[in-house]
Computed example of a mutant assay.
Amino acid sequence: MRTSTRTASRIASVLTGLTLAFGGAALTAPAAHADVRACINQVERELKGGEAPEAVRAACYVGVAGAQDECVSGLAESSVTHGTAVAACRVAAQ
């Protein structure tokens, strides 16, 4: 009888751990999709190896927050072409 109690406790502990692990993964999943680095990389490809200025980084952070129009206009102010700005802001929000 004592062995079955121990087994039941272990099963309960494993199930609790799995619930917490998968529940935590579900809560963090949307944030994991937003990608500032992908946005910056998209712009740096247009710059052909040049490092993106701080204004580009700031615009990409705005894009991660979901403000696509502000992201695009911020990149345009940094002399990024419209097509690249739209693509970069799109990957920032994904």
Rank of each mutant, 00 (worst) to 15 (best):
Q42V: 07
L47T: 08
V56W: 00
A93C: 04
A87L: 15
D69R: 14
A8Y: 05
G23E: 05
S9K: 08
A29R: 10
A31L: 09
I40C: 03
T7V: 15
P53N: 12
C60Q: 03
V62N: 07
R90H: 12
N41A: 13
A65H: 06
A31F: 13
R6E: 12
R90L: 09
E54L: 12
R2S: 15
V91G: 00
V43R: 06
D69N: 13
I11W: 07
A76C: 03
H82P: 06
S79R: 15
A8I: 15
R37Q: 14
L75V: 03
T3N: 10
E44S: 01
V43N: 02
T16A: 15
G50M: 13
T5N: 12
S13A: 15
P53Y: 07
S4T: 14
A52C: 09
G23Y: 00
E77Q: 15
I40E: 09
A34G: 07
L18P: 00
K48G: 03
K48W: 06
Q42I: 06
G17S: 10
G49F: 06
A76R: 11
G49L: 06
A52Y: 04
A92S: 12
V91T: 09
G23C: 11
A65R: 06
V56A: 00
A31H: 06
Q94R: 09
A87W: 02
G17A: 09
T5H: 09
A8M: 14
Q68L: 10
L75W: 02
N41G: 01
T81Q: 15
T28N: 05
R6T: 14
S4G: 09
A92P: 01
S13H: 01
A32L: 14
K48E: 15
T28H: 01
E70H: 10
A8G: 06
E77V: 12
G50F: 07
A59C: 01
M1Q: 13
T28S: 12
P30Y: 02
E46L: 11
N41R: 05
S9R: 14
S13G: 12
E54C: 07
L18F: 08
V72C: 00
L75F: 01
V64F: 01
P30I: 04
A29G: 08
E70G: 15
G49Y: 07
L27Y: 11
V36A: 09
A38K: 08
R6P: 02
S9D: 09
A59V: 03
A12W: 03
T3R: 12
A52P: 00
M1K: 10
T5S: 13
T3K: 13
G23P: 02
Q94I: 12
E44V: 02
V36E: 05
A32I: 07
V62G: 04
G17I: 05
Q94F: 09
S9G: 06
A76G: 08
H33E: 13
Q94H: 13
A34W: 00
A88T: 00
H33R: 11
